[in-house]
Amino acid sequence: MRLSNSRWLPVMVVLAAIILIWYVGAVWLNAGLVEQRLEQTGKEATAAEFAHIAFSLDRPVLPAPHQVAREFYESVFTRDITSPRSLVYHAEITGSATLVGFALGTLLGILLAVGIVSWRTLDRSLLPWIIASQTIPILAIAPMIIVVLGNIGLTGLMPKAVISMYLCFFPITIGMVKGLRSPDPLQLDLMRTYSATRGQVFRKLRWPASVAFLFTSLKVAIAISLVGAIVGELPTGAQGGLGARLLSGSYYGQTVQIWAALFMAALLGMVLVALVGVVERLTLRRMGAKP
């Protein structure tokens, strides 16, 4: 009991501090709007009344936490999950693009790493391009990808998944190259004394040695993958997805809606990373990692 207390207490203190600062910030940032309204109605307000108005504006500059919480609750739990007004509906769209992109990116990342580790020519010729690919701002290239893929008949989920893949293969390639090269000379010499083939060295030494590296990369990659899917929804005028929700919120000044969607995105990200973490723990335990 005391152990769990000591673990949760710091987190809760930070949370309380954030909420407090948030409320103060909401009063401060919404002050202009509140004064406008008071002017229109010609009323005077006490500090408490002032704060109350600041926390209940329809389109505040910064909505109060409880406004966001209420919007989040209503759009998650009180609406039909197949309705475009439900956040679950949007999270599902973005989540599936994320997962497809993540799967493709993992595959591409691993294939590139295997190539780079196995053939010196690929190491020299490919790595600079891989690094260069990550220096291109995704916001600039995302519309191009969507236009090009749209022209060959790929619309909907696939273009977003491709953008996700484009972003998330990189950490996997880098992590896997490191992992596949991690066996020490002794472990490699041992294989040589058995006159093992290159394929056997790969399957029985390099691959298992890289698994821990792979999972570290996967946790980074799945979070990036989510960002990629959301970015992919922005320039398309997509009808569904958290990115579309963010965009429509900003068109109509629905700040409360934007914040609720942001929290949904954060929650989705945490759940995805946690899932990878669970698979990691199960896998590494089977591979004899210290608990």
Binding site: L186, L190, T193, G288
Partner: peptide, 24 residues
């Protein structure tokens, strides 16, 4: 060949470490 360090593969149990050369 027995090296200075055991050079066991940490992801294999003792039994499976023993079977490594036999698998190969």
């Amino acid at each position: 060949y027995v090296f200075q360090a055991p050079a066991l593969y940490p992801w294999r149990s003792v039994r499976r470490n023993l079977m490594l050369p036999l698998e190969i």
